[in-house]
Design a protein around this nucleic acid. Sequence first.
DNA 1: ACAAAAGTGTTTTCGATACACCCATGA
DNA 2: TCATGGGTGTATCGAAAACACTTTTGT
Lengths: 255, 255
Amino acid sequence: MDDILFTEEFKTNPDKYVLPSVAINNVIFGFDDNKVKVLLLRTAYAELWTLPGGFVLKEDELITAAERLLKLFTGLDSVYLKHFGVFGAVNRAEKERELFLNDQRQDNQLNYNFFLQRFVVLGYLALVQYKQVSPLSDDVRQCEWFDLESVPELTFDHNLIIETAFRELRFQLNYLPIGFNLLPEEFPLKSLQKIYETILGKKLDRGNFNRKILSYGILEKKEKYFSGAANKAPFMYSFNKEQYFNALENGLGAF
Amino acid sequence: MDDILFTEEFKTNPDKYVLPSVAINNVIFGFDDNKVKVLLLRTAYAELWTLPGGFVLKEDELITAAERLLKLFTGLDSVYLKHFGVFGAVNRAEKERELFLNDQRQDNQLNYNFFLQRFVVLGYLALVQYKQVSPLSDDVRQCEWFDLESVPELTFDHNLIIETAFRELRFQLNYLPIGFNLLPEEFPLKSLQKIYETILGKKLDRGNFNRKILSYGILEKKEKYFSGAANKAPFMYSFNKEQYFNALENGLGAF
DNA sequence: ACAAAAGTGTTTTCGATACACCCATGA
DNA sequence: TCATGGGTGTATCGAAAACACTTTTGT
């Protein structure tokens, strides 16, 4: 169903398949090596990297469309996914319009005709477990993780979209299942602390963080983890899913 | 420009004028008589009240379209206006589809054809000063204020849209220019307190509220206001605009 | 004098912060 | 035994909450 996207039939007659002038882009956040990561996409048709995205099929709910796309690019379903903004500036395809004028390849004309339309982009924010993702890779599309701090210049207004998504992430920090969705099943408290620190952009006190996060009663203590390093082995924890989502309703205390 | 909306030309050929399948609805909040108010609209073509809204002209920025509509319905510009959600459920016109089947009036067919399409609605939230609004009233459309608690059944999914907007209002309370946009130029502290109380749905302590709100340094003390009532006359206050918006950047302390 | 509402002060409690100290681990 | 990082305790500070007392106003 998604493979129709790159056919001539679709691009000459898109309104038969999808809602006209509406597009979706997913900002997919992961966490690895103490860094926030974003999943980006490159196609054979464009020089610049771009946000993974697509369109809303006639019979799709909006969230279903976003989920379908997330699955396509990461292999995952049932992760945290949420609308966070719309992007429909009149001039958001400016960059692409210039590229079009310079592009000599005739076989790209159809692409330009289609993508230079004005779209209203619905931004969806996803939180995923880095290790579980299988980035899409086929003959025309490759997905790859980027550090949030070193995202290159992207197509359209996608840099702005990522900035907006990250601001939303920071703003809603205490209402989002940050840890649950970004971390593996079991993890040491330090990992969770690192996530909060990188999203907030500041250091937190270890002792205070541990006491506070444990006081919510959303974590279950597991076995110690012996890493082989010359230091005390940390306890591992996992989320008590039910209590976690209960607590999130009212937001965790401010960090 | 907005008057084309109700012409046959527009409804048979809308794609010439507006972005297809995209609509805008404004949830316009006011405050009067210690109650949160919402501005609703009724047209000659429908039984149910509805949210004021419209479409995005080809040359409109999204926010410009929302501003244009707000101006149309209230007479105001440059008030607080912000996107807060999208609504595009496949079945969101269910109710209208049934009405269509029961509607005998032939001259309404064009309306149904147009409005029964699937739209992706961009929700915009506005905060306005109740007294400054001149609700639109012409031969086909009347706007009227409703208490938030007694909003009737509305067209489409508009009840859901209002609920979502109000939840957003509560959630972002400390980051929104609540008082500045909802209150007149000068006001007693009690009015501001009432706004917070009704939005939060709980009583606040008068003393604590006054001390806290004054501690932010965003209010300027004005003359006393003698209402004629048999009690102490309260001081009036007005916002120091610059300091207010500065303080909002980081959010006011939690209420 | 009294009722009603504004304005101000006080006490208590709780959580945030900073920091110190001890413990476990492998080299 | 040392370095490293985990775990825990404690003192301090400030904000939040509860509530009492005083002041102003018109009847």
